[in-house]
Amino acid sequence: MSDEEYVYDEDSGEWMSASDFAAKQHAASQVEVRDAVGNILADGDQVTLIKDLDVKGAGQTLKRGTLIKSIRLTGDAQEIDCRFDGIKGLVLRAEFVRKR
């Protein structure tokens, strides 16, 4: 018999080792963000806009083909946080970008 601790997983209804349970929780907390064509996005990626977008509150339009550098994932599967000249706190929907 080992000295490893066991934890009851309510989702599966089984007892599992604490290390396996922690790995399962970590995998479940990871959100997979995909761009308009299905590529997986990660922090620091560069993306290109596939559609002209009117930016609310900035009175500016981001044109199709605009390069956005160094994106950050927000934890939502459809939103990415990024910076662009003159626009602070820009959040884009993943369906309007393509990984470069």
Rank of each mutant, 00 (worst) to 15 (best):
G59S: 03
L41A: 00
D11P: 09
I71Y: 06
L41G: 03
Q30R: 11
D81A: 06
S19D: 07
D9Q: 13
L92K: 04
Q46H: 10
R98S: 12
L62C: 03
F84C: 00
K88E: 05
Q78K: 15
V97A: 00
K63P: 03
E10T: 14
L73W: 00
L73R: 02
R93Q: 06
R72V: 04
A36V: 10
G59C: 06
T48N: 08
D20P: 07
I80S: 00
W15V: 07
G59L: 09
R64V: 13
R93M: 12
I40L: 13
S12M: 08
S19M: 12
R64K: 14
K24C: 07
G13F: 07
L41T: 02
L92V: 05
I50H: 05
T74P: 02
T48K: 14
L92W: 00
S12N: 11
A77T: 07
Q78T: 10
V7Q: 13
Y8M: 13
K51N: 09
K99E: 01
R93E: 09
D54Q: 12
V91D: 02
Q25I: 14
S17N: 15
G75N: 13
F84W: 01
S70D: 06
E32L: 13
I68M: 04
D9W: 09
D85V: 03
F84H: 00
A22P: 04
V47W: 01
A22W: 08
V37R: 12
D35L: 11
V97M: 04
T48L: 12
K99N: 07
V55M: 02
G65L: 12
A42E: 14
R72N: 10
V97F: 04
